[in-house]
Design a protein around this nucleic acid. Structure first.
Lengths: 107, 107
DNA sequence: ACAATATGCAACCATTTGGTTGCATGTCAA
DNA sequence: TTGACATGCAACCAAATGGTTGCATATTGT
């Protein structure tokens, strides 16, 4: 799971995922267009995304097609973010209480 | 928003958030216990979390109380992960189709 | 006043990261 | 077959990251 978080931490990689979300199954070359980076840089980013299992790859002759795999993101949403969502309002209440309590300590 | 992703990318920092979720309003010292790291290391991580607005801080004398702020995580869930959840099944279908199409190309 | 406690700040270090350039390899099309 | 195209691999580099140690500062309790 750490791989997924790490992969999502980079804006360029999130951009790549966004592009695949808009048009799935693009090649390296496709993804390079208008992405102010070298092909090799993009290639490295894609390797990270592959390692995190966020994109799957299908070779078609000399072309490598990249497909978005939404499963890991879904799992993070379910298992990790979900936890925080559940305690969200409690945490906000704690915060509010703490912020109100201290400054007016001197009554 | 990038700050939030970057902050969430580190396991130690997610651990810290987890601890605050379990018990909100802990001090630096509290958070250091059983966290195999120097106080300064923990302090740096907390600084990153503060910068990302994921924890809020209330000074109480010489103690610094840390409170979880769930808002940024909520926003990411809503605005970013939500997008991918929405196109989730389509992407899975694309993937499946691509995987099935190529290997059995030779019919 | 003073010692203990809770924290901050700065310098330093090793490793990782994001990027580059150069060259090699495999596939398609004429 | 041969040239153009799509990609991979490796070396290299600067900057960011995660961690340390040492010292400074502020607050508390006796």
């Amino acid at each position: 799971m750490d791989d997924v978080f790490k992969a999502l931490a980079d804006p360029s990689r999130r951009e790549l995922l966004d592009r695949l979300r808009i048009e799935n199954g693009q090649t390296l070359g496709d993804l390079c267009r208008r992405l102010d980076m070298t092909r090799q840089a993009v290639s490295k980013h894609l390797a990270v995304l592959e390692a995190a299992n966020l994109v799957a790859v299908v070779w078609q002759g000399r072309e490598k097609l990249h497909y978005l795999n939404p499963v890991p993101i879904h799992e993070i949403a379910e298992r990790w973010i979900g936890k925080f969502e559940r305690s969200r309002l409690d945490a906000l209440a704690d915060l509010k209480r703490a912020l109100e309590a201290k400054p007016g300590d001197d009554e």
